[in-house]
């Protein structure tokens, strides 16, 4: 991606992430009763890897993602990016939230601008935003306001904004969860393209097994044991094959059955 015409002006170097015994408890109403959401999460993520955090809703996936982004702090354990501790709202990360969270009074292009690193030179910023608009196929919508575009377009803007800084770690919190099934598939393909063009480390929260199988190098299952409060990693699965993957592959079908099984959903596989 150096001499190519579409090479990003913002050089991305994917960074490793390490989670060491991460736990998060929220103080309850009476001070004695804490609510333990996460416990003992131990995970090493390689630079450029795509990891999907999968689990039933409310199991702490988003909370774990917020620990990595530095928007929230663990109550036990520690996290590092590239060997150094994660700062509050760590700027080596970029987040695309479950909702697009665009500023309604700014145009699409100006919203993407928000994601540029502080102190980016104006001209360079404009070039970068132009590239990103092209990458998420929204060049035609650059001057529209968020209320004038569809939900799928808004999520692409949100994705472009997260990519604007060339993040070492890209955190995606169910970014396609609210989209219709077809748009979701298109967005997944787009993400594969983006990852090839700008290879960041990606941590993706999802409750969609197929999405995890289509995108992830590894799928990390979060779950709670019946006898202990707090979710932790219950299983890690390696997903074989290079992206884009054949959605109808039998290998993936077998993995899907395993995952659904682990999530407690009957897969009806092989009947």
């Amino acid at each position: 991606m150096t001499s190519n015409a579409t090479a990003p002006t913002q050089t991305t170097s994917a960074l490793p992430v390490s989670l060491n015994g991460v736990g998060r408890a929220f103080p309850g109403a009476p001070r004695e009763l804490e609510r333990l959401v996460l416990r003992d999460v131990e995970l090493k993520i390689a630079p450029g890897e795509i990891v999907a955090l999968l689990g039933p809703s409310g199991c702490g996936k988003s909370t774990l993602l917020r620990q990595i982004s530095g928007l929230d702090r663990p109550t036990s354990g520690s996290l590092t990016i590239d060997g150094t501790r994660i700062a509050a709202a760590d700027q080596r990360c970029a987040v695309a939230f479950q909702e697009p969270r665009l500023l309604p009074w700014r145009t699409v292009a100006r919203n993407i601008e928000l994601g540029l690193p502080r102190g980016t030179d104006r001209a360079a910023g404009r070039v970068r935003v132009g590239e990103l608009l092209e990458l998420v196929q929204l060049t035609h919508a650059a001057d529209l306001k968020p209320r004038q575009i569809s939900g799928g377009m808004a999520q692409r803007v949100s994705l472009a904004r997260a990519l604007a800084r060339g993040p070492g770690v890209l955190l995606l919190d169910e970014p396609f969860g609210a989209l219709d099934a077809l748009t979701r598939l298109t967005m997944q393909d787009l993400l594969v393209d983006i990852h090839r063009a700008e290879p960041a480390t990606i941590v993706l929260v999802t409750h969609d097994v197929d999405e995890a199988l289509a995108l992830a190098d590894r799928i990390v299952l979060l779950g709670t044991r019946f006898d202990r409060p707090g979710a932790t990693i219950s299983r890690i699965l390696e997903v074989p094959g290079t992206r884009p993957r054949d959605r109808a592959s039998t290998v993936l079908a077998r993995l899907r059955a395993q995952l659904l099984d682990a999530l407690g959903v009957p897969s009806h596989h092989g009947r």
Binding site: L71, A89, C93, F97, L103, W105, L114, G115, R118
Partner: peptide, 27 residues
Amino acid sequence: PQLVEAGRAFGLGRLPLLTTVQLPAVV
């Protein structure tokens, strides 16, 4: 609060957050 958090996530400090997110939001 989601917009404010998004602003924070993208590295806006207290004052830039005010001028970029909070003040325009209350116009």
